[in-house]
Nucleic acid binder design. Structure first.
Length: 573
DNA sequence: GCCGTTTTCGGCCCGACTGTTTTCAGTCG
């Protein structure tokens, strides 16, 4: 059972006991444990098999650990079944409607016999909801609006789609001389792989003019709200952007608050509580004196709490606060640490630009090297290279290298891992290349055992240096292949095969928690763009975001190393 | 149900908004 499935059970339990009216803190305990399991870099199922102590997971104690073991070993949970039996099937779906909480949901069920969202819609339309005591016209109206909004609600948007739009808008706002600070907040700033609504925050002496500029930007399709300090707009692509203009003297605590995550803020406030400090978006209040201290910067806010600054990417309420206490937050990798890109395509296969153009663009970014890694012939749709064309390309690259100093084009291939785990090109040819990247591109529906064996066989091939986009997921499009990821990590560590963090914004594969776990196990990582054109080389920042969320430092990433070290790695074993 | 520099019991983040009420319950982020 996957972590996501386990987490869903505990989220459901939280909903059900909330409907039951149980202790708020018990509800929160289940929610917290569910989130921790969701974000766990380790497979819970594997931990149970290994006999690891689940109580090491923050928020998981005796009771939830026991339930988790039952769930993983038997596939079911008695406690969960009993709870579900107490309520009609669809009643907890009502909780997904903004404005409907447990109290109202239960009353709708008991007083009107509502058992589903559809039932509720009917009850609003025929006027029954509006006549309930302590509810009314406006509540009913709001419920109806929310139900309709839910039906048309768009998915969360991949960060790769959202970020360029936001940056364009922010660049335009920065043209206003009255604007002092401007930054993103929320999950976008934390670099989560998908984002919902987007918050941007700024400070200014002239709020009115900034708000006016914001709502009349050319990208704005619809103005949802416009007030004295805040405006919400819908831009092209149905992205909702909220601009908040806040007081300069508490900008630090406000930015901290709106960056979240919610769980990070809870952990921080709990800790503050023990220090007799009350934390809020307005600053830090000493409980004894009642004096509120304001902060213009986030750095000052964390410092006042006796904490090292915590980069936004780490603020998920897991271990970061405890590590900041011990001054153990590392210097995370940055774009500027990279010395090359080890996975790009050119017009020799399905890319758009020439080898030379790609190399020049990479060099212009300050890189020392680039690896040309076309698809192999098995990948018919991508005009993959057969043996002859690959040999021609090797010769071409050799010629280009002779013409240049201080930059190196590495010969390579992104070779297909066939359904049986064999590779698409003979070992003798692979041996001639500087770098061999292996990847799954076909037969993606194999069962876990077969798929894992298949990928392990490729990893164990002596010529394979990197496993590309290991889980093959496409955000919002294709689920990851079934893989025993821990087994892959172990084999990668053992054979010193690097795993790729593919920076394509719709891939981000490995993802953050996988990068975390792989790093923890001593697996060598690379961050590559898989660029199919010059402009794709800029995708590298998305890979950096994933790596930072995985607590990676420059030393964990192979392509932060100078050319000689990378070559030494490629010649290993 | 979890957890510990007020520890094995007794706490548990904080502020704001909305609607329906006259002081607050419910919900949200």
């Amino acid at each position: 059972m996957k972590n996501a499935a386990i987490a869903k059970v505990f989220h459901d339990i939280a909903d059900l006991i909330e409907l039951k009216g149980e202790n708020t803190f018990k509800i929160r305990a289940y929610q917290k444990a569910a989130r921790a399991i969701e974000h766990s870099p380790r497979e819970i199922e594997q931990m149970v098999k290994d006999g690891s102590d689940l109580k090491d997971i923050p928020g998981v104690g005796e009771a939830i650990a026991k339930k988790t073991v039952e769930l993983v070993t038997t596939g079911g949970l008695h406690y969960y079944d009993e709870l579900r039996a107490e309520f009609p099937e669809g009643i907890s779906d009502l909780l997904d409607i903004p404005g409907v909480g447990p109290k109202i949901a239960v009353r709708l069920g008991s007083e009107l016999g509502v058992q589903s969202v559809d039932d509720l819609e009917a009850a609003v339309l025929d006027g029954r909801v509006a006549t309930m005591p302590r509810l009314g016209e406006k509540v009913a109206e709001n419920i109806l609006r929310q139900i309709q909004a839910m039906r048309t609600k768009e998915r969360r948007i991949p960060i790769g789609e959202a970020l360029p739009v936001i940056e364009e808008i922010m660049a335009e706002l920065r043209g206003c001389p009255a604007l002092k600070n401007l930054t993103t907040a929320g999950s976008l700033r934390r670099f989560r792989e998908t984002v919902g609504d987007i918050d941007i925050m700024g400070t200014t002496d002239d709020r009115e003019s900034i708000i006016d500029t914001f709502v009349s930007l050319p990208e704005v399709k619809e103005v949802l709200a416009k007030g004295g300090t805040k405006a919400s707009v819908l831009v092209i692509g149905d992205l909702q952007i909220d601009l908040r203009l806040v007081d300069h003297d508490s900008f630090g605590s406000l930015l901290q608050y709106f960056t979240g995550s919610k769980q990070h803020n809870i952990v921080l406030r709990e800790r503050g509580h023990r220090q007799k400090l009350k934390l809020s978006e307005y600053g830090i209040t000493e409980l004894q004196t009642g004096v509120l201290e304001k902060f213009t910067t986030e750095e000052g806010f964390y410092e006042r709490l006796g904490l090292q600054f915590i980069p936004p990417e780490l603020r998920e309420g897991q271990w970061e606060v405890e590590r900041a206490e011990r001054n153990a937050i590392p210097r995370l990798i940055e774009v500027g640490d990279l010395k090359g890109d080890l996975h790009v395509h050119t017009d020799w296969s399905d890319g758009h630009d020439t080898i030379e153009a790609m190399a020049l663009a990479a060099r212009a970014k300050g890189y020392q090297y680039i690896a040309i890694t076309e698809h192999s012939a098995g990948r018919g749709v991508a005009r993959g290279l057969n043996e002859e064309r690959l040999r021609n390309q090797i010769a071409e690259i050799k010629r280009l290298n002779e013409q240049t100093d201080g930059f190196r084009i590495l010969t390579g291939i992104e070779v297909d891992i066939r359904a049986d785990g064999s590779l698409d090109l003979p070992d003798e040819l692979l041996a001639e290349l500087d770098i061999v990247i292996a990847a799954v591109h076909s037969a993606m529906n194999q069962p876990q055992e077969k798929m894992t064996e298949r990928v392990l066989r490729a990893i164990r091939n002596l010529h394979v240096d990197v496993l590309a986009h290991p889980t093959c997921r496409l955000l919002g499009e294709r689920e990851p292949i079934m893989l025993d990821i821990e087994a892959i990590f172990s084999a990668a560590a053992e054979t010193d095969t690097a795993l790729e963090i593919n920076a394509m914004p719709n891939r981000l594969d490995l993802k953050d928690i996988h990068a975390y776990r792989a790093r923890e196990l001593g697996v060598r990582l690379v961050i590559s763009t898989d660029a199919h054109s010059i402009s794709h080389l800029d995708f590298i920042r998305f890979g950096i975001g994933v790596a930072r969320r995985g607590w990676c430092e420059a030393r964990h990433i192979l392509n932060t190393r100078p050319l000689e070290e990378v070559e030494a790695f490629l010649r290993r074993g």
